[in-house]
Design a protein around this nucleic acid. Sequence first.
DNA 1: GAGCACTGC
Length: 671
Amino acid sequence: MRPPGEGPPAKRPKAMLPARPAVQPRGPPPAEQQRRSLPIFPVRGRLLGHIRGLDSAVVIGETGSGKTTQIPQYLYEAGIGRQGTIAVTQPRRVAAIALATRVSDEKKTELGGLVGYSVRFDDLTSDETRIKFLTDGMLLREAIGDPLLRRYSVVILDEAHERTIHTDVLFGVVKAAQKKRKQLGKLPLKVIVMSATMDVDLFSEYFNGAPVLYLEGRQYPIQVFYTRQPQSDYLQAALVTVFQIHQEAPSAQDILVFLTGQEEIEGMTKTCRDIAKHLPDGCPQMMVIPLYASLPYSQQHRIFRAAPKDCRKVILSTNIAETSITIPGIKYVVDTGMVKAKKYRPETGLEVLAVQWVSKAQAWQRTGRAGREDSGICYRLYTENDFEKLNQMTIPEIQRCNLSSVMLQLLALRIPNVLTFDFMSKPSPEAIQAAIEQLVLMGAVERKDNQLVLTPLGRKMAAFPLEPKFSKTILLSPKFHCTEEILTIVSLLSVDSVLYNPPARRDEVQSVRRKFISSEGDHLTLLSIYRAFRNVNGNKGWCRENFINSRNMMLVSDVRAQLRDICVKLSMPIESSRSDTGNIRRCLAHSLFMNAAELQPDGSYRTVDSHQAVAIHPSSVLFHCKPACVVYNGLLHTNKCYMRDLCVVDADWLYDAAPDYFRRKLQAAKN
DNA sequence: GAGCACTGC
């Protein structure tokens, strides 16, 4: 069943007819039998018949239809696209790896043979590989080396409804490659966009009116309830709802509650546990489990453990449980309707992280988490009227981000005019312009004969899988003889924080971390942590004692090795500044000069660039300090406008870094 | 004086 309100898209064509049951003299082997039991199997023939003759197709499939595992195999088995490889993109690494493993099993081949995968740091493909699962970001990276995607005969863009920034850029890249290959008379490129039941018209229109094929799925019915009145306090409402369910429903039925963030979830966890201690006799026990991305793996895994008898699992989660983590056995979903999400204001260059309403699509996604194994129930803690007022879809990431990376990539892809690039959902002209300005300021892009071209520096920057400002920092580092240190710092900054901060043990964390702190700022503090980590060879016990996230630390080593390889390929000299931190700070001043702030007489800070009032983020080691001049990695607007990851610099260095820029700033200030 | 949704190259 479809939840009420989602409804089938208006232009839904005739449902596909089931094919005749296949007659087999002997029963097929179990794996084959399993494949044949999928909802997609009966329509295999018709599906292939359609796709064979098309350049592009949109496939809409509900959860459990089997589209992602079966369609690539059907195409391969039918000899469609045999002249090349079939690429299937996924937004997430784990999904790409899991799907490749599954399909490889079904084909009874060794993973990395006929079926393989390619994700960052992990490539399991060979010359034999004909079905390749990869992250969308990985295919984009490949496209920079080969914009026509020549090795692929079919590109399947899966989970397109999630509209990640990479998928959105890929839409344009594959469309352009398809057109160009046709013009040049090369092997045609077939494009298949796969999505849940959303955005259909948009996808179809974008790919020149590509036909839309629908697949039924296997989802259990879910009852949806709304509140009668709007709730002024969604946390209170969630609490009441959870305990109401708890007192009425059998204890084997678990509850998943969607909340907005770590702090809220930790607070709610504590409240629930306190209340659960004083429940009336005869009421089942309650196991309350928080879930959010920065939680260590070991704690995230607790959600998969079955609760003891007469005990109910209640999982309090961020939107990580919407897509990234599937929790088995959820009967009830409690949806607060709220999410913490990033917005981007191009006029100020500010990213704003704010609690806001979910979209309808997101609300349905949350609801669907209750019907994975059996029928379910979803409580929406808002009125039906409020639901109707929600946006149809979540705004695609590409319209909520700083676009400097995207623009650099498009230029590296030799897109003729990046300002008019054929985006499915166009970012605002201001956002595109702001990104270009940033790239010009960094020296990555030049205007030549009214055209934007990549400078040699810009082309080198595009070789790094990093934000442009970080690539720039690395490329500047040989001048300051500190490439080894900058590689470490940039690697640390480009993964999730290596610092583990359990709120309950705050004092302990602070005292243990003191020994790493550099008065010169966060970059150098992180560097000293990494050096200490290397000195103990990544010892896990050491990480635990020092509240260091060892998983992220290992990742830093991987990133660093990858970046170092790229430096070697670019023939960069790689030197160490050893104990001289001055050069490291000079290098940071030269690459982050547009992100500088100065101490004001009243003790506050203002940016050098636009005189915006800013504050030092509480996570910074400089939070209690008042350095005269700093550069920072970025601004984050929550209650205040905060600078994150700071480095103490000399004001003179900034002027040396970009004299023209600061002269213009001074001029503008006078006028 | 006080805070950081989620991915990915």
